[in-house]
Design a protein around this nucleic acid. Structure first.
Lengths: 170, 170
DNA sequence: CGTAGCATGTAATGAGTTACATGATTCA
DNA sequence: TGAATCATGTAACTCATTACATGCTACG
């Protein structure tokens, strides 16, 4: 139930229409919490029904400008400070659990590929580091560190696998 | 669509009933890819319809023992070696994006709490490290490194916030 | 004989994705 | 006037969660 909170978070910064939010999701929240247009408009209706946002001025072209209410701010604050919810799925870890099911050589190739992907991602992040706004700094740093461990780990894992293949060949 | 592959992965190791799989999910896959009993039984039917698993001996108490087919193994292998699928949501990162919406003191307390949680988790993982079977070593190591960065990052973030609060008080 | 554990399923609800459908305004 | 952009919505489908419902069997 976190799309709701993402919308509240954005509207807490400044009011906007569904269309505006859509762009914000696409520009800056895409990698963290993807959402589609359908979902957004639906959620905005539900938030309005629940009294967490309100429709202000209705501009041209059917535009509805939403803004957050006090109840909405309270809800946002509660969620922000609440503990981490359980149930995080990781497709990466799941693949790893079963990587033993393919040929060692294939597994090595897979890990090498992962290391390369992570390295590329890391380079991209480092390139845009200076452009990150102050309010996004903490999130960016965590993302950066995660990518870095993924890269280091994949390199380590590939080497480890290479050793065990070599020792079996003796 | 990865529950499907988790089931295939388990059945590739050895055949079993829905009930058996349920226990495996609860024991070892819980933290990586949680699934409920309902989901499992539904997925097994669909997998059987798709010809990726087959029902072998039907034991007592209505037990149906499923085993993987060649088509199933092919599907599993394809998935294992396929690139990382996009669309990973991170509630943690989402919260971070909006952490600026609460009082700095509250944000600091939140981060300190996160650091403590991660430290505890890390201690638990290190305590069971020796018990990890060889085939789960890679996944375990990645999990370990992730928790470690989370802990280090939370400590770093809290300190950073403390500094900026102090400099504003001058 | 009762209960713990084995074993399978259905129904309702909520969340997410894709595709479709429609209309207004700006500007070249 | 035609295309790009602004703007909102609906429908169909899949996936996940919770709760409910049922029945068999081993064993103490």
């Amino acid at each position: 139930m976190s799309l709701r909170h993402a919308v509240l978070g954005l509207l807490a910064r400044e009011p906007g229409s569904g269309y505006d939010l859509m762009k914000l999701f696409d520009d800056s929240l895409r990698t963290v919490w993807p959402a589609t247009q359908s979902q957004l408009y639906g959620e905005l209706s539900r938030l309005a029904d629940a009294g967490l946002v309100r429709v202000g001025a209705s501009g041209g072209r059917g535009r509805k400008e939403y803004s957050i209410t006090d109840a909405g701010r309270t809800e946002l604050r509660t969620w922000l400070l609440s503990g981490p919810s359980r149930g995080a799925r990781s497709e990466m870890l799941l693949r790893l659990c079963f990587l033993g099911q393919v040929e060692p050589a294939e597994a090595r190739a897979y890990l090498r590929h992962q290391a390369e992907l992570a390295a590329k991602e890391l380079a991209e992040l480092e390139a845009v580091e200076r452009l990150v706004p102050e309010h996004g700094r903490l999130a960016f740093e965590l993302g950066l560190r995660h990518v870095r461990v993924r890269q280091e780990w994949a390199a380590w894992a590939e080497e480890r696998l290479a050793e065990s293949v070599a020792s079996m060949a003796e």
